[in-house]
Nucleic acid binder design. Structure first.
Lengths: 342, 342
DNA sequence: CATTCTATTGACAACGTTGTCCAGGGCCTA
DNA sequence: TAGGCCCTGGACAACGTTGTCAATAGAATG
């Protein structure tokens, strides 16, 4: 028994290869390759014989080998925070659609807001030689990406900017959106307005807080201690923060929620209270219309689509310097943001 | 200029390989491989020299080549219906977590309920030689998978059964859940109950309908024409169906919604009406507690986790015949299902 | 000091595909 | 009928990695 046979015995599955197809069809290896890739230069008769052999053996081209040979994988990587978050589902789906239109597959990974896990995922994707990367960063230093980018892996950052590397970015106007939302509350008579947001190391969280402060300053309102709370978006934490702001002798009369998860918890807390509390949330939520929740909406699908289109433009050879796109947000009044101060 | 050089010029990116690292470190190719894979038998000094070369060149192992050599890709494929659907986000995330625990990456694809697209995706994943597949089928004939399964690609079907192939399946108890939900409405005094579900070619849709019929039969109620509507879950279609059932001289007093998308639209339609209409929906929805919607809940994360664990058990060598797991559902009463008939 | 043993290292083939190039056969033209 | 050309098909190398095996050097042993 020669070495090859011994080895093939231990292999898993043992699928037919082009060589097997060629043998069965009585043609050369390259001819099979030509048929599989619809290359010209094969007589209809030969093609038929090859096709029959392919069907009979259940042959399927091994894309790993193809990738190795061609250098391109026709796949892109998407690293986001949590696929289970309703904001990222549509974003991911939009990326997938664009990828599909370009004949590429999508490899997905969730960082769970952990910078180390983000890096681990990104590098694993690079080792797979994905053609491009779309990253919603968890960390704030992405110098580890430099060799990858230099090596030609196109990269687009989404939702939050990249740290210390010069790449394309697609962001939502967090600052402007939050400012508009808070100004909306002020326009409806509120002056004591609370802000509950995500952890301060997350860029969008601080941007939205900046928008809050800007709106307050514009209205000449001094933000008091205890009106602002940044931290995890765990329901318990948010609940505690909200209840704190809504209690005491001089409670806030309105809340601005820094993202969809905060909004959900805020709605619950407010629903339990007697006194009405105005609320504007960043990010739209399903059924928010029925609950009458006023939100600052960002179009997750549009963000994903834009990012993916940028990426593929790069892959198709676009050479312009890295661009930073900022997508606008929309205020959708539905009632909760138009309540007067109690 | 020789052929190699000419070719490498046209290559994209041109990353350093182990050969380059070896040359720089002044060692043999295999020694680099050993260092990269933490294999034993390398002196600390050599290892340091290699590591320096790796860092200096920004080398990253090419996993495509590795896969080709080793036969395993350490990646699994997940084909579902629509990543943007809130039911699939948590499912997908759960699969990802299990995959991560096994050191595998997840490749994702949405079939958009199109059987052809499902097949296309599945075969593309097979060509990538994913180690395993988790499929939420759109079509009802999966014989095209036979060569793949025979070739050793482990496969688990989720949410809906496979057609004409014998594989592992993880399902929710659609029949039992729907039956329980409808019985719940009957127990609260309803007899005229409408059922709005997904397209009849989708297995869960017919199973849930079967559950509806069973509950009605158990209660000795004859289902009248016009109480049942299966079709697309587009809001317009569902809205039309609901309004039809709720109009006329003898309207239904309660609705059973066949999935989350139907529920959402049903809630909207009911909210617009004066007369209260009872509602039970299949699948839980975010904020359903605040809206007081009674649902039959299936744990999407548990479904995903179970499926992924089955898959990896197979990949680890489990040989038992294909199993069919059915996960139970839970009735969560929140008000809408406990309304008496108007 | 000769000999055996072990630890370290590298040469080489192979994984399955695609790009390059050459051979052979048929056809056309003069 | 000879010469040239085009069309089809196949042999071969290369992609970057890992498994196998052999070679070398140094240590240990007698």
């Amino acid at each position: 028994m020669d070495r090859t046979a011994r080895h093939s015995e231990t292999r898993y599955g043992n699928r037919p290869t082009m060589k097997d197809v060629a043998a069965r069809a009585g043609v050369g290896l390259k001819t099979v390759s030509r048929v599989v890739n619809s290359e010209p230069g094969v007589t209809p008769d030969t093609e038929r014989r090859v096709q029959e052999a392919i069907d009979a053996l259940g042959f399927r081209r091994n894309d790993s080998a193809r990738v190795l040979r061609k250098g391109r994988t026709a796949s892109i990587g998407l690293v986001l925070e949590d696929l289970a978050d309703p904001f990222y589902g549509p974003l991911s789906r939009a990326v997938e659609e664009v990828a599909r239109a370009h004949g590429a597959l999508l490899i997905n990974g969730s960082s769970a807001e952990d910078p180390e896990r983000e890096q681990e995922l990104v590098l694993a994707l690079c080792a797979r030689r994905v053609d491009g990367l779309i990253v919603i960063p968890a960390g704030d230093d992405h110098r580890y990406l430099e060799p990858e980018i230099k090596a030609g892996i196109a990269t687009v950052f989404v939702d939050r900017p990249a740290g210390h590397v010069d790449v394309d970015m697609v962001l939502s106007d967090s600052f402007g959106g939050a400012r508009e939302g808070v100004a909306h509350l002020i326009a409806h008579g509120h002056r004591r307005i609370g802000f509950i947001g995500d952890q301060p190391r997350i860029h969008t969280a601080t941007e939205r807080l900046r928008g809050y402060h800007a709106a307050m300053r514009d209205a000449g309102i001094t933000v008091e201690d205890g009106w602002v709370s940044l931290g995890s978006t765990e329901p318990e934490r948010v609940r505690a923060a909200a209840e704190e702001m809504l209690s005491g002798p001089e409670p806030v009369t309105a809340l601005f929620a820094g993202n969809n998860r905060v909004t959900v918890t805020a709605v619950r807390v407010i629903a339990e209270r007697e006194r009405p509390v105005a609320l504007v949330g960043f990010d739209d939520i399903e059924l928010a219309d029925l609950l009458g929740i006023t939100v600052i909406s960002q179009d997750a699908a549009a963000v994903g689509r834009t990012a993916a289109e940028h990426l593929f433009r790069r892959l198709d050879g676009a050479e312009h310097p890295p661009a930073r796109v900022e997508l606008p947000t929309t205020l959708i009044p539905r009632g909760s943001g138009e309540l007067p101060p109690a």
